[in-house]
Amino acid sequence: MAPNGTGLAHYGNGEKPVGPVDYIPRIRDNYARLGYKAYNWVVNRDTPPWAPLRKPLSQCRLGLAASGGIYVAGQVAFHYKDDISFREIPTDVDTKELRATHFAYDLSDARTDPNVVFPIDTLRRLVREGFLGGLASRFYTFMGGIYSSRRVSEDLAPRLTERLLEDGVDAVLLVPV
């Protein structure tokens, strides 16, 4: 983090950007400017849970959940205000039917190639190549940017986990934006 806690100052004065961008100060400043109450970032200091992969990837069925706001044409699109719904995307979907909607990133690339936030073609290719054993029959998408971490922990995360268990995946790839 920059010495004064703002992302702007970090790269001011013609300095060359070095290292990864710090988003926490940037987003905090944006929320303050919009007049929202301070966002409480989730900070977990404990050791995360751990489930080891039981077999090689070439024998695994992979699931995917992505928060880039992808939907299939014909589905109800996401909205921009704490949308905790998710969409089920069949993994044999025609990529041309995928759409992107989101309030927090530049959608222009995702709308011409959804693989930048929802790597459907990439994963299907990795199955054809034998790198992965297979894919779940459905993937999941949602919005992210949900203000209440409690609603994610108590609602969205358990519902998604329940689906992933039903789908019998051996591992899951998670793609935020």
Partner: peptide, 8 residues
């Protein structure tokens, strides 16, 4: 942001 799994 918006390119978590690559370039278009």
């Amino acid at each position: 942001l918006g390119h978590t799994t690559g370039k278009p």
